[in-house]
Write a protein that binds this DNA or RNA. Structure first.
Lengths: 242, 242
DNA sequence: GCAGCAAATTGTACGATGTACAACGACACT
DNA sequence: AGTGTCGTTGTACATCGTACAATTTGCTGC
């Protein structure tokens, strides 16, 4: 006796079928983001999404071609408007600082989306010309041109995602409890003979450095490191100016 | 009439059951890597893996707890031994240069693994103390200590993955044909009024800059940009030395 | 040699998930 | 009223991860 396919939430009085559509591409994406925020990407699936929207699973497909398209859109939404406004008398450095800040804040607002960024980013920031132009303009104002401009641009984009992805990507899920102490244990077991610098700096590094952490960026943000990172990137670009 | 569950490849004379195990954790991981190299992560599944190993799907579970563990191991294998050897009279710069070089080469050998790196890297490079110590020792030799050491370390790790992940992550799958020309089309349609710097530098950037590419790093490597990137990172670290 | 045990694999089965596809209702315009 | 299109319901299925029981095989102590 297979239970009926779990009718949509009977509560909310939905608009009747065709008058004003209950769904829309935007509502779907929005709900998907909410779903991911609550449950994480791994647990995200179309049936839960549909339930949240109070429709049957396949209704979603009217507005969206498939699941990966939804994920791509979600990423796009999260990072929409990362590109800062140009300000008059804007220094290229301060523009880039703001860009880095905004990017990280977008990620921090939706940490569960972070792992998607890597997978989708190539085609993502979906050819956001404003974003690209913003970076290029800043670098151009810094005096970069030609091959150096390209190299600077790629460096900025690489840096932008490299830090943030790692900071906010979820740690080995679920059994956090046990895993956390396992990591701490391993750290305590460092052999000062084999790994002297690490051993000597353990207290400084523990939970504050990639790979040596047991908490996520949303629980234990790496504010200082990020601030320093941004300055390092700027210094790197500076060195490109010849 | 459900077809029988597709018996394992009848060919290869497997070792009999318990004498010398046909499988082993290593063989599983190795086969998984091969599978991913050929088909990509998205298409990777346990049944194909089992078929390649000429066993029934669930036999794999004797050696490995679950799929994600396999993926984690695969990443670990690919980046095993990234940490370069220390050389006598080793300059910290040349050590880091080698590290960056080796990391990228590992990724280039298995580009399909790239998207996994982000997802798993946090717990990945599975507390490879040799890797960590290598970076720390180099930075320490550069004169960094305390908070600056931490910041430098995090910057290196962030930079390491930021560029490479993006360079090699697969572009919007499948319909490459159509997608590629779509991207090119959009690029040609840039409005010089709205995005002047981009428009002016289009030929330089097209297919050679993140977001503005239509080919993967394995097809169109960003060698020059990466070389520059590494030098920028070093300059950034330099700036940390006060 | 043989009983029994453990290791490793075969086979079966099930629930979750993405998605195709065929109704079907509701409004919009004739 | 008739008809077509939009948006949704409802059904159905193939794929996949994995639990679990049955079975085979070699190894060990007797």
């Amino acid at each position: 006796m297979p239970s009926p396919p779990r009718p949509p939430r009977a509560t909310a009085a939905r608009k009747s079928a065709a008058s004003k559509p209950a769904l829309s591409r935007e509502r779907v994406i929005e709900a998907a983001l909410a779903e991911i925020d609550e449950r994480g990407v791994a647990a995200f699936n179309l049936r839960n999404l549909a339930e949240r929207l109070a429709v049957y699973p396949t209704a979603v497909y009217w507005h969206v071609p498939n699941k990966t398209a939804i994920l791509a859109e979600v990423v796009a939404v999260v990072f929409r408007d990362v590109a800062p406004q140009q300000r008059k008398n804007d220094d290229w450095r301060s523009y880039l600082r703001r860009l880095f800040q905004r990017y990280r804040e977008s990620a921090r607002r939706h940490p569960n989306v972070a792992p998607l960024v890597a997978a989708h980013l190539v085609g993502n920031l979906r050819i956001d010309f404003d974003f690209v132009e913003g970076v290029l303009a800043a670098l151009s104002a810094a005096g970069l041109a030609g091959a150096r401009l390209v190299a600077g641009y790629n460096a900025v984009v690489a840096a932008l995602i490299g830090f943030v992805i790692q900071e906010f990507s979820p740690l080995p899920e679920a059994d956090t409890e046990q895993w956390q102490s396992a990591v701490q244990q391993r750290l305590l077991g460092v052999d000062p003979a084999a790994h002297p610098v690490l051993a000597a700096n353990l207290p400084l590094l523990a939970n504050k450095a990639f790979i040596l952490r047991w908490q996520n960026g949303s629980e234990a943000p790496l504010d200082d490191s990020y601030a320093s990172f941004v300055e390092q990137v700027l210094a790197g670009l500076e060195s490109l100016r010849e």
